[in-house]
Design a binder for these strands. Sequence first.
RNA 1: GCCCCCAUCGUCUAGCGGCCUAGGACACCGCCCUUUCACGGCGAAGGCACCGGUUCAAAUCCGGUUGGGGGUACCA
Length: 492
Amino acid sequence: MSSVRVRFAPSPTGDLHVGGARTALFNWLFARRHSGVFVLRIEDTDAARSTDAATQVILDALEYLGLDWDEGPIKGGAYGPYYQSQRLDLYAEYATKLMESGRAYECYCTPDELDQRRQEQIKQGQNIRYDGRCKHLTEEEKRAFKDEGRVPVIRFKSLEAGETYVEDLVRGTVKFDNITQVDDFVIFKSDGMPTYNFAVVVDDALMKITHVIRGDDHLSNTPKQIQIYEALGFPTPKFAHIPMILGPDKSLLSKRHGATSVTQFYDEGYLASAMVNYLSLLGWGYDDSQTIFSIPELIEKFSLERVSKNPAVFDIQKLEWMNGVYIRELPLEELFEVALPFWRKAGFLSEEISPEMKEYALRILRELQSRLKLVADVVDLSRYFFVDDYPYLEEIVEKILTKPQTEEILTYVYDVVKDAQALDEATLKPQFQVALEKFGIKMGDLIQPIRVAVTGTNVSPGIYDVLELLGKERVLARIERTQAMLKERELM
RNA sequence: GCCCCCAUCGUCUAGCGGCCUAGGACACCGCCCUUUCACGGCGAAGGCACCGGUUCAAAUCCGGUUGGGGGUACCA
């Protein structure tokens, strides 16, 4: 049994889209599942749109997701180069073979002429296809065109009868009519670059790709590619077309639906484990009860047989939930590592971190862990732990600190804290209970004003944890700050 | 226009002729826990697009309709 070789072949024209990431993931899982080889190939034949920067972004995104490739950029391999722009002579070689065997020919029609004829075909309700008029050009005719300054393209001479069958691992056998569906398409552009449908075949064949796993949008192109494989005498690989990813409005997922690039998700603090898990569920499912899968589990359980046929809507809420699940499972030390860049960026922590500061940060994370959906949330949720001039949420002050007795309650708490041995629940709670009697209020009526006073908001971890973390000095200062703030408001 | 693909709760999906009164997860709603917010626990609501067949029996098979998606480039 020959070993599995699959590839992911992005074109470096922008960020890595989640659709591309999902395709890369399925290929990677398939390779790992079958102890095969995962090849990364950069399809940069569109010179106008491809950039080195975009290539780097894609490489970074794959690295972040943990999708390591066995052959490709940086790594190299026996079937390189892995940039299409460096394989031009190969494409020329195989195009020449097709010319020599009579399966390709020069076409001198200009884009304008082609477009005009296309419009005509549309108007007449005909199939849109190349009419083959350059198929039998004489040498004189070619010379005449050249003298006009025309630069030819090379077209593939497609089959003129019969049907082409795509044996798809996800969809079964799909039949295409050769006459109406496969025309003499361009394989070499006038700028000397191969087109996708040609280069992809040459590369996949030469790189010994055994399974082509790619987006559904390529299904219609497959018969063209199969005809090239056959014309060149290459064995055809197995195909598996996986469903598209859509936005909430059921149209193809794109930038206007919000975050769609892997880089954006990385920047917002999504864990790679959550991204991979979520992406794996877009177009694939295991059984009726499991949704959380570790990467080893995914590798063990992934199979093309269970890939679904219908397009999947990208559900950001489910991704967020899943990210929360993985954050909660993270050891505190690791959570600290991922939170650190966000804290630094917010200016809460500097480059140098003392052991005491790290200990403090770890204790904060212990309280915040169950409250995070995105790692980026850690900044807003921990602000008052790091800055003393934290903002007061106006509507919360209005709601909580304008109640009668607030002044007295704060003063009472101030005195309790001032004399307390420790700011833990065991010490404080009995004292607070005394206050309940004294003011005729419930625990919530006591704790909420304290919370707003020391954090500026009505949302925080348990109050005893907050007070203890803040420490006596800061708690007293904050109560004073709040009292001063309230006094000022009265004057206004 | 033509061709191809697809069709189970709002969303992702389980289901591959009888285990289905259609299961799970997210979201939503209610309750519990509770000092707020989360977490956690419990519960409710919610779907086989439609019409014909085949069959003793269909969400599952076949055909059509409708709807959605993709392709039809000197983009990939």
